[in-house]
Amino acid sequence: MTINELQDEIIEEFELFEDDWEGKYEYIIDLGKKLAPLAEEFKTDENIIKGCQSVVWLNARFENGLVIFEGDSQAIIVKGLVNMLLKVLSNHSPTEILNADLYFIEKIGLTSHLAQTRSNGLASMVKQMKTYALAYQSLEK
């Protein structure tokens, strides 16, 4: 599936929770619980995303022309949000990731989690994912 198809799928799932914040957060918490923990060897200082209130780790590798992301967080809601970002951006080519316009976050009403405040550092996570994509793209050339 393309990045946009994956985003549309998430948007569709969240349509169930319009006006039901509890349902929405239960769903995100569930996504957090379902995300396999990152292997301890990848929970390094270099993999920590700066600017998050809880510790968020992001690990990336490049396989067969695709960028594979793995992530984790100490906070379960953040971990759920990380899971969504991984679903959308992992397993795509560097070019696709660099060109991605992540409209799903606004559509599902979670913009506050992407805000550029020191406590909500998911914007930093997206930026870091794109930085990895850029680095792998230059490897390809």
């Binding site: 914040w21 509890e22 957060y25 209130q53 809880s54 100490q74 906070a75 379960i76 809601i77 953040v78 406590s119």
Partner: peptide, 21 residues
């Protein structure tokens, strides 16, 4: 067993402003 940030997010959904961190 619950991270302070998760407490803050769920309280915020209920209109309650606390500081976490």
């Amino acid at each position: 067993g619950i991270h302070p940030q998760d407490i803050g997010i769920i309280l915020d959904q209920q209109g309650i402003a606390v500081r976490t961190g």
